[in-house]
Amino acid sequence: MIPPAPFDTKAAAARLAFFFALWLTIAGWTAKDVPVGLAAAAGAVWISLKFLPPGDARFRPVQLIALAARFLSASLIAGFDVARRALAKRPDLDPGFVSCPIGLPSGAARDAFLLLQSLQPGTLPTGVEGGSALVHALDVSQPVAAAFAAEEGHFRKAFGHE
């Protein structure tokens, strides 16, 4: 399915570092376990390269942190939003689907964007059809499509998909 790509040493090294850090997080730091951790991380790198070949994303740390901050605050707002609607005397809802054009090509980047988007207040992407994400919104009177487009801009900046 996926054509064999030339081995990307840089990506592999980056992922190895990531997974080894993850190992330390999970297992804690014990000197005698380090070889096992390295082997496990190497295995994880192999799996991740096999299932998710390195793309052309370029990471921009500053924007990435900004994105993470936006995302955390958004998910906080999303939780409050749902809680407010759920606990209102009569559930405050005007649900419906909104079609939001999406520029990201199909692939891991788009899926990741939609994943983040699904944690935004009041919206839930339910797949892409014909170049548009079909977003289910709790309240269609809100500017759902505009917010979606703005978020896509932020995401593209953070991952260099411009």
Binding site: S75, G79, A83, A86, P95, L119
Partner: peptide, 29 residues
């Protein structure tokens, strides 16, 4: 509190799609 709110949403919201919002947002928070 948010678990509680999510549960209330899951029980009170009128259709599956809106219940899904309650589940995915409130509980994760």
């Amino acid at each position: 509190f948010f678990f509680f709110a999510g549960t209330v949403g899951l029980i009170r919201f009128p259709d599956s799609l809106t219940r899904l919002h309650a589940l995915s947002k409130a509980d994760n928070l």
